[in-house]
């Protein structure tokens, strides 16, 4: 019987699941994903995590516990240091496997390979994946083959994002599921800028994206933008951000501000998010100075109420529609 590998449905799951899944299946493992976030998962996460950790990390802890309860043979918690040359990820990703191991006892073996493209060579990360392959009794060639297939699938997934699908929708399409057909009578265009792990988890974000769609807004996320557009936006700053996702947030925000191709921008971040305290501050100030595109910040945490979010979204969409009418008259 093939071994099972658990992948927690949190943090960078929404960005890299196709790659990870393809690789593990390529080396003969069976992939088990934790459940969608629910009250139990979040409660377990909050209970077992450090109080000051951000919401997505607490949720992630809950997902790891969920996998532990499913008795998987391994849990995949990679140490993702960098996914782009000369760019880091937030500190929590650098210490994630160590952190999780310290928090939760009696875990099955953790696959904690290091994913690190800081020096821009694929070789380091390939070697790490070969190590994983060896755990499943695969030779170097077999692992490499699985790795290349995995990166191929990842590219396929990313091209779906660029077609205007959100990460969640793209994951569905990639897995061969059909999307629910949307009515397309949107009269607003809203950019939602955030880490995918904050807005793609429908439980912790309280379905912000769905809600906006129901209010008649077409939603754009930063993953839908082509890389050069983001870089174009980011180039307006005097020093480029050293975290690639924060660079993307700033770049996407500034791009939308410059192009004015959306009616409004909403930035969503988790309570106590360190990196976002920098990007929010900058974006908010720049948007205020320009006074061209309305900008709203939403902070989510484990105590956020759905009604509060609903009211703010309604107020924001009302304001955008009001703006539009004012322009027409």
């Amino acid at each position: 019987m093939s071994k099972t590998v658990g992948i927690p449905k949190g943090l960078l799951y929404y960005d890299f699941y196709p790659m990870w899944k393809t690789f593990f299946e390529g080396v003969g493992a069976k992939v088990v994903v934790s459940q969608d976030t629910n009250k139990k998962i979040l409660d377990e996460g909050v209970k077992n995590c450090v109080e000051d950790a951000c919401l997505p990390v607490k949720t992630y802890v809950g997902h790891v516990i969920n996998l532990k309860e499913k008795n998987v043979d391994y849990i995949f918690i990679p140490r993702i240091v960098s996914v782009e040359r000369k760019k880091y990820l937030c500190s929590k990703f650098l210490g994630l496997p160590d952190f999780i191991k310290s928090l939760i006892g009696d875990l099955p073996p953790i696959i904690d390979i290091e994913i690190n493209y800081y020096k821009n060579n694929d070789e380091f990360t390939q070697k790490e994946f070969i190590k994983v392959g060896r755990m499943f009794g695969k030779t170097e060639d077999q692992s490499l083959k699985a790795y290349f297939e995995a990166t191929h699938q990842q590219k396929k997934f990313e091209s779906l994002l660029k077609k205007g699908l959100t990460n969640l929708e793209a994951l569905k399409v990639w897995e061969g599921k059909n999307l629910v057909k949307e009515e397309s009578n949107y009269d607003l265009k809203i950019a939602v800028i955030a880490h995918p792990y904050d807005i793609m988890d429908e439980y912790i974000s309280m379905g912000i994206i769905e809600k906006l769609k129901n209010m008649g807004a077409q939603v754009y996320t930063m993953e839908m933008l082509e890389r050069d557009l983001i870089l174009e936006g980011a180039s307006m700053l005097s020093k480029e951000m050293f975290w690639n996702y924060e660079r993307d947030i700033l770049g996407a925000g500034l791009y939308f501000l410059k192009q004015k191709n959306v009616d409004g921008v909403i930035m969503v971040s988790a309570f106590g998010c360190g990196p976002n305290s920098m990007t929010e501050e900058l974006l908010e100030r720049i948007f205020k100075r320009e006074k061209e595109v309305p900008f709203m910040l939403i902070t989510i945490d484990e105590h956020s109420g759905e009604d509060g979010i609903m009211t703010r979204l309604e107020a924001f969409t009302d304001l955008l529609r009001f703006n539009k009418k004012a322009v027409m008259v």
């Binding site: 450090v50 000051d52 937030c90 952190f99």
Partner: peptide
């Protein structure tokens, strides 16, 4: 300091 990510990670680890 409140919201210091590296120290929060360390906080979880030094408990062990």
């Amino acid at each position: 300091p409140f919201t210091c990510t590296p120290e929060i990670v360390a906080q979880g680890i030094i408990a062990k």
